[in-house]
Design a protein around this nucleic acid. Structure first.
Length: 434
RNA sequence: UGGGGCGUAGGUCAAUUGGCAGACCGCCUGACUGUUAAUCAGGAAGUUGCAGGUUCGAGUCCUGCCGCCCCAGCCA
């Protein structure tokens, strides 16, 4: 026999009538005595191969009966269009090859399982159709992020993961670092992003972020991926326009190119279809008035709680910016609001459907003296910020940026119940394996 | 770190007042020439999270411990 033609399942329609070989993993086995069915997946799709007893060799027929779920196999046969097959394509199998046999105790069955069991078996759970679809959507979002910024002249800058204590303060993972004392896993690349913006103008970072908070909610991971753009000469208003263009680009891109996967996971498409600019804008002070009218006890000066966010978003069918929080509720690097010095020029973007904050952004304090005062007021070690302060001494500039949580965005676009499904191998307080 | 909940077969769960530990799915054996999580008949499968206590008798009641889930806080 001549050397086989290998094909991926998603390209089989163009091989109709030809004999090809498909390699993959067994998902279902069915037999009706003299006709047998093998369903296999190869990452690109799912294929049913049909074996008829009197049309294959006795060896091949025997091999079928020895197959098990998740065994890796190669199937060779004629590709044919058939309405009885899911997807409209099936294979009339002539030959089977067992590549790697899977024992009978494969833990994940085609039925309901509990979430803890699935997370313990994440390395297998990832093979299921729903998880494959989510990972393909995640990949689409990641690619769309790069495309969005590339098309607009941004430069991607990679910032360090091992840092000295700088940035946000709470929940640091630490490790010994030679003779330099402790190093900490990065909680943000922003401060480095600001330095890079003065070199390159428009930049973004895309990397892992670590928070040692003992968070136990559906919205938190200890290790997550964050995208942090930083733009020289953007003020807060321009920053928010960039955010709404960016977020709606990601949503529309998934609707265009990953519609099949969104439908596969049962995502209702009507809500994301509406996610187009302009998003709603609400001043923090007005937000307080709104939620108090709805019964919240939160007072001016407090940060907004999860319940408050829900009250705000409930009125809107598109994401909402809440702008200009009180200074004390926000980080030291945010620029004082000239119109109301009690507040800073910042914004949180609250997603629809109860997904909460997916972006935190701000214009940065560019006044050297005010920044020093804020660092001292917060009780931070001023010497750790020497290079960051230099950015204000040597040609300070208006600039603004934000951080988008990748997994929160994936969970929101996919309509997931929990953020742990939005990343291949979630890291949470009680989850370090697999 | 608070508040609430749950640990029973490989999986999902049931078990009345304290009274013989069960069902379904999966798995094994057999039948079936178009199945779609096939169907039908039969079978195997348990240290009831761990340690102690009360009782004639504990999955069930009591004490302690362990583990996880959900909500809040922290934030993206």
């Amino acid at each position: 026999m001549s050397s086989p033609t290998f094909a991926r399942i998603d390209e089989l329609k163009s091989h109709a009538g030809q004999t090809v070989t498909v390699r993959g993993w067994v998902t279902h086995l069915r037999s009706s005595g003299k006709v047998a069915f093998v369903v296999l997946r190869d990452g690109s799709g799912s294929l049913q191969a049909v074996l008829v007893k009197n049309q294959v060799s006795p060896e091949t027929w025997t091999l079928f009966s020895e197959l098990t779920q998740e065994s890796s196999i190669a199937v060779t046969g004629e590709v044919r269009l058939d309405d009885r097959a899911p997807g409209g394509v099936e294979m009339g199998a002539k030959e089977l090859e067992l590549i790697g046999r899977s024992p009978l105790d494969y833990p994940i069955q085609p039925k309901e399982h509990g979430i803890d069991f699935l997370m313990d078996n994440r390395h297998f759970w990832l093979r299921s159709p729903r998880q494959v679809a989510i990972m393909r959507i995640r990949n689409e979002i990641e690619q769309a992020i790069h495309d969005f910024f590339y098309e607009r002249g941004f430069i991607r800058v990679d910032t360090p993961i091992l840092t000295a204590a700088i940035g946000e303060r709470s929940g640091l993972f630490s490790t010994e670092y030679f003779d330099e004392g402790n190093a900490y896993l990065a909680q943000t690349g922003q401060l480095y992003g600001e330095a890079a913006a003065a070199a390159l103008g428009k930049i973004y970072t895309f990397g892992p972020t670590f928070r040692a908070e003992k968070s136990k909610t559906r919205r938190h991971l200890t290790e997550f991926w964050m995208i942090e753009p930083e733009v020289a000469f953007n003020d807060s208003a321009a920053n928010m326009r960039l955010q709404e263009d960016f977020v709606s680009y990601l949503v529309q891109r998934c609707l265009e190119r990953r519609r099949a996967e969104l439908l596969e996971i049962g995502r209702a498409l009507a809500p994301p279809e509406r996610e187009k600019p302009p998003f709603h804008r609400l001043d923090y002070t007005d937000a307080i008035t709104l939620i108090q009218k709805k019964g919240s006890e939160t007072k001016w000066g407090d940060d907004l709680g999860a319940e408050d966010e829900s009250l705000i978003v409930a009125d809107y069918d598109r994401p909402v910016f809440v702008m200009n929080y009180p200074k004390e509720a926000k980080a030291f690097y945010m620029k004082e609001n000239p119109a109301d010095p009690r507040t800073v020029l910042c914004d949180d973007l609250l997603a629809t459907e109860g997904y909460g904050e997916i972006i935190g952004g701000s214009q940065r304090e560019d006044d050297y003296d005010k920044l020093v005062a804020r660092i001292k007021h917060e009780g931070l070690p001023i010497e750790a910020y020497d290079w960051y302060l230099d950015l204000r001494r040597y040609g300070t500039f208006v600039h603004a940026g934000f951080g988008l949580g990748l997994e929160r965005t994936v969970a929101w676009i996919c309509g997931l119940q929990h953020i742990r499904e939005a990343i291949p191998f979630a890291r949470m307080m009680h989850r370090l394996r697999p």
